[in-house]
Write a protein that binds this DNA or RNA. Sequence first.
DNA 1: TATGAATGAGTCTTCATTCAT
DNA 2: CATGAATGAAGACTCATTCAT
Lengths: 206, 206, 206, 206
Amino acid sequence: MAKTGGRRNLKRTERREQILQSALQAFSRGGYHGTHVADIIEQAGVARGTFYLHFESKHDVFDTLVDRTLRLFLDVRPMGEEPAVRTLTDAEEILRASYHAVLGTIHKHRKLMQLLFEEAVGLEKGFRRKLERHFAAWHERIQGTMQLFVDAGVVRRDLDVEMTSDMVLGMVERLARRYLLKAARPDFDRLVDALVTFELGGIRKR
Amino acid sequence: MAKTGGRRNLKRTERREQILQSALQAFSRGGYHGTHVADIIEQAGVARGTFYLHFESKHDVFDTLVDRTLRLFLDVRPMGEEPAVRTLTDAEEILRASYHAVLGTIHKHRKLMQLLFEEAVGLEKGFRRKLERHFAAWHERIQGTMQLFVDAGVVRRDLDVEMTSDMVLGMVERLARRYLLKAARPDFDRLVDALVTFELGGIRKR
Amino acid sequence: MAKTGGRRNLKRTERREQILQSALQAFSRGGYHGTHVADIIEQAGVARGTFYLHFESKHDVFDTLVDRTLRLFLDVRPMGEEPAVRTLTDAEEILRASYHAVLGTIHKHRKLMQLLFEEAVGLEKGFRRKLERHFAAWHERIQGTMQLFVDAGVVRRDLDVEMTSDMVLGMVERLARRYLLKAARPDFDRLVDALVTFELGGIRKR
Amino acid sequence: MAKTGGRRNLKRTERREQILQSALQAFSRGGYHGTHVADIIEQAGVARGTFYLHFESKHDVFDTLVDRTLRLFLDVRPMGEEPAVRTLTDAEEILRASYHAVLGTIHKHRKLMQLLFEEAVGLEKGFRRKLERHFAAWHERIQGTMQLFVDAGVVRRDLDVEMTSDMVLGMVERLARRYLLKAARPDFDRLVDALVTFELGGIRKR
DNA sequence: TATGAATGAGTCTTCATTCAT
DNA sequence: CATGAATGAAGACTCATTCAT
């Protein structure tokens, strides 16, 4: 809608970043295939040639954006080291903190996240694989934490850790899609509450 | 894959169905944009014109497939009438049956389902809206059942029914994507078990 | 709009004629290129194959129609033999009769005539040449009559017979296009009057 | 006809004009439907994409050419203001001048004119209407002049001004088609003479 | 004779990428 | 660095004609 940036004679990095932002804007609106290089450069207020001065191809920009999104998750690590888990309350604490961090990140970068959750799906093998690897990594992390709880004996021994991790992943994804991607001010507390409560106790009466 | 042979005049409906199947095959492989009409007709062993004799456009075939997929879910209704819920065990029964039915349907039509979960995402507004409406309908159904449980007093009164339904939706979607779409013989029991256990009791120790 | 004819088991000639009429109808509406074989057979209520049983091609039907139109003019010959011309009044008589005949024919077959004047123009060489030959023939006839008048001494000796014949041709064509092709009940007398008066005396005061 | 050579970047307007000329050339040869975009770009020695950089479609180029042709006639106005008409000689003067101007324009732009008289006929409604409006305008102008003569009393009072204007239109059109469109050096004087003589005095002896 | 399913050459149009200026 | 004119491979769709039934 509005030109993303100013004009002329930016430093290489700045111009690149400007194009990247414009691309994000454009892709968010139209998806990968619905967005043309023309849209991106118009949004950026930059000439066609300039675009190719900074990126190899349309694929390249999209890829860069996806990578940047993925990298965001690597930084979501609420505590630097393995926390000690003695009681269920410890576990709850950890979960609460994790979800807060994750949901916060997702919301903060919701435009980028949309790329992951809605635009990069169904694209060609390269992106597909990247996404799969990403979800696998995330799954591993969740599973790690869960196993920690199991080992600490604060949750059920017979938990199907693998599938449950998948389910948690799905829960977060859907909540994110529904309540974070488009919302300006989401109710984080309600979301985290719902997540933690459900994960810990299911729907069963206490 | 295989040309059927020379020229053979089928009945209108048969040819249409054949093309539809070929299209499904093709879209499954390459996604919407990665699939060309050429791929579909090659797969069907049919001439270009024949394709357009039965469908208005590439978009039209895809749309038809998506609609067919969506319609599949309307038929997933394990019991004809509202079941009575007295105890948690009743609820468990219902959930178990529901999940069995749903997962079974998903697996049975996994090629079609893939369209919903992986190919129709990120496409243009028409499909997007269709998907959203679909998920909304599904969400409503889940929420309905859950509310039934709440009203019957067999689960927590303070349950955030709306969000929890979303989470359930996400759980099923992710499990389906991971364990059903590509697997030839999935372990339904393990899946249903994981789902029901988690939904009912969370990860907490009994 | 309305199916042109009945159905089934007509004699060869009848079916052919029926298709021809439907084609005329269709071409009148959409011109040569704007009309598809589909339009013609729909109008005729006949199957595709039937069409090709009676005509070699779309080109063929059109050609047949054009030929038929052209042949109509050959029959427009108000009197069997060369009339004697002694006075200007004789000439006027002849012109009046000729125009009446010609305009009458044009109006009677206005659908067909439209083909000549509006649809067959600008088509490929075959039609072009046919039209040219036709107009040349007509021109010759007009010129013949005019020369008769000159030789009889009832009109100007220095008349540019060739160009004047062209002009007469143009006059008739335009009047036909404007007042005959679409009109249900044209005012023939006014038309003939205008023609004869103009041709004989120009616009000059008597 | 001749590729200009390697790649050469022209100014936007120049390239557009070049393509326009090539299109005119091509359409003149093959008519609207007989001419393909391939013919135009080959003639222009330009790539496919370049064509669409300057015109929206084949229809668009043709339309542009037709419009340009029509606009040519608006400029044919031999004298800036209403001339005084006292005698038949004045009228003759005016007619002579008008015809000279019109025929001159037609011949000068005969390629373009061919579009009007031969190619744009029988096309779809848009062009048809445009042509009709054009002929109507021309008719009005002729009728205006003629009425001037009538009012000045230099020609017959009972003249059927409307139809006569149509006839004049037809005369000019046919003469133009026959003697101007293809001729390199037409005999303007003979044409104007024939026209003026006929229009003023008809074929009758003086 | 009649039918209508099937064919495929033919065209237009798009759009990512290149390159002269 | 920047520009934007030029490129052309790729792909969707049409429709006259053929042929199995």
